[in-house]
Simulated assay, not measured.
Amino acid sequence: MEQDLMSKKELLELTGISYGQLYRWKRKKLIPEEWFIRKSTFTGQETFFPRERMLQRIAQIQSMKDDLSLDEMASMFSTGPSDISLSPEQLLAQNIVTKSALDVLFEQHPGIQILKFEQLLSLYVVDVALRTGDIHLDDAAMIFKTMEQNFERFENASCRLLVIRKLGVSSCFLCSTAGDLYFEADTKIVMELDLAKCIEELKLRFV
């Protein structure tokens, strides 16, 4: 699916930030390198950005810059792991995940008492998936296993999670956000999640 892109000029005009601020935030890794998309135009090479993600990120930076340093924000926006750990009871009490998601966790890890960030993320993704209403509990267990077994391979790279279904049989996989995917006929994409966005949403719960 083709992204809705905006030019650098449009971005600066809409947000009121300066050229210097934009590239300082890039250097500090508040804005991912891959969001700076070089394209050929009739005037030469120009830089474009994914509209929705870029506007959302700049709004977040501007709303938090008085409370957090640039380094603290960079850590929060990073797709890498965090030192956050919580018990299942704390997750439920803080409304981070639902009981349905915890049931999936306990099926995989009976008696677990503390979840490290990687497990928190896997569980959070399961919860987001269940909330769509398109995912069955068997699918949710498959998602949890896929995340646990493979996410470290994408630890510092942007990736997405897809659940597909054909003739009632579901499959789940992680893939790079770059490039398109093509499936055989009658295959339906049931759900697609941007994991960088899920990581960001989860870390924001602890700010």
Rank of each mutant, 00 (worst) to 15 (best):
L55A: 01
S7E: 07
M76D: 00
L68D: 07
K145P: 01
D67G: 03
F206R: 05
P88F: 12
F144M: 10
M54H: 06
E118A: 04
C175S: 15
K28S: 11
D67E: 07
G168L: 01
E148I: 13
H136M: 00
A196L: 12
M73L: 12
D194A: 09
V104R: 03
E10N: 04
S85L: 00
T98Y: 05
E200S: 11
N150I: 02
S158P: 09
C198G: 03
L68K: 10
L68Y: 11
D134K: 14
L162A: 08
E118W: 06
V163K: 03
R53D: 12
V104Q: 07
G111M: 01
N95I: 10
T98N: 11
D67Y: 13
L86V: 01
R24W: 09
L86S: 00
Y23G: 02
S170N: 00
L202V: 08
P32S: 13
T15M: 08
S40C: 09
L161E: 04
G179S: 06
A129L: 01
T47I: 15
P81N: 14
E107C: 13
M73H: 04
Q94A: 08
V104D: 11
E200P: 02
A101S: 13
A196Y: 06
C175T: 15
L102R: 11
A140Y: 02
F183K: 11
N95P: 00
E2Q: 10
N156F: 01
Y124K: 13
S176Q: 04
C175A: 11
T15R: 04
K8E: 14
